[in-house]
Nucleic acid binder design. Structure first.
Lengths: 193, 193, 193, 193
DNA sequence: GATGAATGAGGATTCATTCAT
DNA sequence: TATGAATGAATCCTCATTCAT
């Protein structure tokens, strides 16, 4: 079963979710297709289970909060730390990108991505809330969605580069998020006296 | 043939490129599969032709330059104008999003997307160059890629919302790009004496 | 039209008759499929017409008789001459091999091959008849079929070799036919006074 | 699976290899197309497996040597025996002819035929070697190829006739091979004291 | 006469899924 | 529990042939 999930991760990574076939996953896992269907009712269930395990691992690794919510932390540092952690996690689990990879058709959110995506948005929301006191919840949600979208877009750039160029893109990603958020939190600077 | 391209656009939009089948496109166009293959050797060729037509239309609609390069234009206004135009174009041609939609597997750039994507990056690069004098070409290219990625990510958010919420996301997209670019052009303010 | 036949010969040679498509022939000829069908009702008709033209050319080149029926000619020389002429003709018109190439299914003689094949058998029969006086017609026919079959088999070997090896196979082909026929004509030696 | 191979043999026989469709084979076997592809990756693999089974059966039936290599056996008898056995085998397995059937295009040996054809040539070579002592290997190989070609050509004639006519053609085939080989082995007559 | 778009059944092959063993 | 053969509709694509222009 862990075998199956690993195989699924591997196949998802190399072919993408849509093009991944259950037979290929079973083969990669060294089991028969029938066995796969004894654990998962369909391909999507595999993606969902995989997502859940990844989220669990993320929570275990980084704790409930993504970043230290120490209000004294400068935003720039907080953002950089969050990005570094996310990037690190994604590099160790490249399938995350594949699973989060937006739907082919905007608006029709693919279910399998939803779990991971929604959870991450929620985490970002939780992270943002103390930074944006007095901001309507709807605005915070929107901001979280935007951050998530930017992060995913940046991640794609990062993953398809290597070495110094990758580092440069990571820095850009930090810049984007920092500059985007700064004016929002600027009114109540976290670097108070 | 225009019939076929329209049908393809429609099918790409509703199912995504990967899941779109040539038979479905032919059916949507009201012709037989054979007919489709008299015009296009395969699915990718359809996407490429579609991309080319869209790029052509874009050039015809907005001219060679995406935005007025009047150096006196405040960055915020320039960015807002560019985003509005892009968004408008994408809303009139929703297939653009599908065609630009990143690869399932990062790094392995799908050929059919390349044309459109690369062309757009080039346009952004051309737009940025006068704004960032003295910046190394490699940095400008990177910045253009980042802008493009942000735009695509924002577009997805925008397209999956409607009404006021969509407007709000459009504004966020403008904010992101403006705030991201502002420090870069800040050293040589376009609002000179 | 000659254009079409040339194109057909070329396509038949490079893909074989079965795999040759009328569209490919039309393309090779630089005309549209429709044009092809204005001259030929179907693929087979092309093969038939091609066969007929080849037979005509053969008759024009070598006269009604394949070989000099001078009874004084030693069999070995006559056979060698006939083989050389056939081989020469087949090398100048490689499509002959393709057209003669036996049916995929023995017994169900493909119609298009029939013309050429039957004509050649008839020529061989005519050639043999004076050499085998007193032999029942059925036997002569059978012998002609055998010669034809041997020739075709030898031709395949010859055509798939080059240089010295090809020459060696040509010699073997002559040997086969000569040794096969010698005992049959031996009783009434053509070299009689 | 045996079911599939039998069906394939049947379809190959009635339509020829090129024209045989995997769907037709599946239908003939009474299974769905998908089932066929669980055992064979493609049409050629079926032909190859079929060839291998036939070669195995041939070896099991006739032993490693095709004919008794008793040097005292007159060539005529040895050839007749070999032909009879081959013919018998081919009549019991008509698909052999189809599988051996030369390529549509000379020189481009079809892979699927190769196995069977090459194996048979090797057997003939083994058979000839003791009969032709002192002959260069290259010549023996060539002679084996010629014998094989003659046999295939004769087989086609035989298979497309029935009854007495078939018997007559079998006799002719024996004659051809015997007369072709006799001068070669004549120098060291196997009928020694 | 020539065109070339149109056909549509058929080609090989794949795939998510089921089920008897 | 695990297997792996079986499914059959769906995939992309081809082809001989037709027919309006």
């Amino acid at each position: 079963m862990a075998q199956l999930l690993e195989a699924a991760a591997s196949v998802f990574c190399s072919t993408g979710y849509t093009a991944a076939s259950t037979n290929a996953i079973a083969r990669e896992a060294g089991v028969s297709p029938g066995t796969l269907y004894q654990f998962f009712p369909n391909k999507e269930a595999i993606a969902i289970e995989l997502s859940e395990r990844l989220m669990l691992e993320m929570r275990e690794t980084y704790g409930e909060a993504l970043a230290p919510v120490d209000p004294a932390t400068p935003l720039e540092v907080a953002v950089a730390a969050a990005v570094d952690r996310f990037i690190d996690f994604n590099c160790r689990h490249p399938v995350v990108y594949t699973l989060m990879h937006g739907p082919d058709v905007p608006g029709r959110i693919a279910e399998q991505h939803d779990a991971l995506h929604t959870a991450l948005v929620a985490r970002i929301e939780a992270l943002l809330t103390p930074l944006l006191p007095g901001t309507p919840a709807a605005d915070i949600t929107r901001t979280a969605h935007v951050c998530m979208a930017m992060y995913k877009a940046g991640l794609e750039l990062v993953l398809s580069r290597e070495g110094a160029e990758r580092e440069a893109y990571i820095q850009e990603l930090k810049n984007i998020l920092h500059r985007y958020l700064e004016p929002l939190v600027g009114d109540c600077p976290p670097t108070g006296p």
